[in-house]
Simulated scan of single mutants.
Amino acid sequence: MKREQDAILAALTPVVDGIVATLGSFCEVVVHDFRRPESSVVAIAGTVTGRSVGGSMSEIGMGLLARGDQASDQLNYVTRTKDGKLVKSSTMVLRDSAGTMFGALCVNLDITAVTQAHALIGELAGLAAPTGAPTTTFGDDIDSVVAAIVDAHQLDQGKPWAELGREERLELFRTLDERGVFAVRRAVPQVAARLGISRASAYSYLSQARSGSDTSQEQQA
């Protein structure tokens, strides 16, 4: 199946340039190889997210990776980049003839200017402003993506690691696991460093989160 998967990725490589040439400078098209999440970008055209070949997947890709063969296309969702761009995207899952999910074709459109114009017209017409979009980390460095996911989850909880109860800590690790963070090599040590705990504690929390155990002895951070 590896040859078939490689052939599909190779066939899509020239397609990205054609789509961007058709849709223009506000478009970016990316081909991802999920077999190597740390450097999943195998082809890219356009500059919406600033990534390059050899770059990493975003949180969206990690979520698909976590769902494996059960993953489905994510169409017409809107996120915000770190530098404030509003991006409308569709991510189409790539499968081989056996149905194995191994990559994705992603189309990103920078709709910042369109959204600003819409907001202005809406204000003049007395309409409510559109709701905000979640911030997504795009980059060539997978470590920055992992760090952003950990930080975002801690912000959602509203308190630092030291103030979390045992179940809250396990829930954090469950959430990170469900979002595909631990499919990335070196993710556990990085998460441990981000939280200020030992690697042994991080591995213990991950094991307990996956097993659903309520009786395992909690290690001290």
Rank of each mutant, 00 (worst) to 15 (best):
V29Y: 09
V31N: 00
R199D: 14
T91V: 08
G46F: 03
P130L: 01
K82F: 10
L176W: 00
A202R: 09
T47S: 09
G61R: 07
E167I: 07
A125S: 11
A162D: 12
S39A: 06
L9I: 06
E59K: 11
D141V: 06
D17R: 15
P14H: 02
G158D: 00
T112Y: 03
T13C: 07
D33T: 07
D156Y: 15
M62R: 05
D33E: 10
V93W: 01
T13H: 14
A98G: 05
V87Y: 14
R35C: 13
A117H: 12
T131A: 11
D69E: 10
S211Y: 11
A43K: 01
T137Y: 06
Y205M: 08
Q217M: 11
A66N: 03
V146K: 06
S201D: 10
G132M: 07
V188Q: 01
A10Q: 13
A193R: 12
G180D: 00
D143I: 08
A200E: 09
M92Q: 15
S90H: 09
D17A: 13
V20G: 14
L172F: 07
H118Y: 15
Q190W: 01
N76A: 13
S39G: 09
R210I: 09
G54A: 08
Q208F: 10
I60S: 15
Q219G: 07
S72H: 12
V41Q: 08
I19M: 08
S201Y: 04
F173I: 01
V188M: 00
I149M: 00
S207A: 13
L124C: 14
D6F: 01
A10N: 15
Y205F: 08
T22V: 13
A45E: 05
D214R: 08
V107H: 08
M62N: 03
A162N: 10
G50C: 08
V42W: 06
G46P: 04
V16Y: 04
A43P: 02
L109K: 10
S198L: 00
Q154E: 06
L176S: 00
A193E: 13
P160M: 05
M57A: 04
R199C: 03
I111K: 04
S40I: 02
E38I: 07
R3M: 12
S216T: 12
I142S: 09
A66R: 00
V93M: 14
G84N: 10
S201V: 03
G212P: 04
F102Y: 14
E171R: 03
S201W: 02
L94H: 12
A98W: 08
S97T: 13
D73A: 06
D83I: 09
V42F: 07
F138W: 04
V107A: 06
S72D: 14
D110Y: 02
D110K: 00
D143N: 13
Q190I: 00
P37Y: 06
V78R: 12
F34I: 04
A162I: 10
R186F: 12
A209K: 00
E218W: 13
A162G: 03
A202H: 03
L94T: 05
A147S: 10
L23C: 12
R36C: 01
A152I: 11
M1W: 07
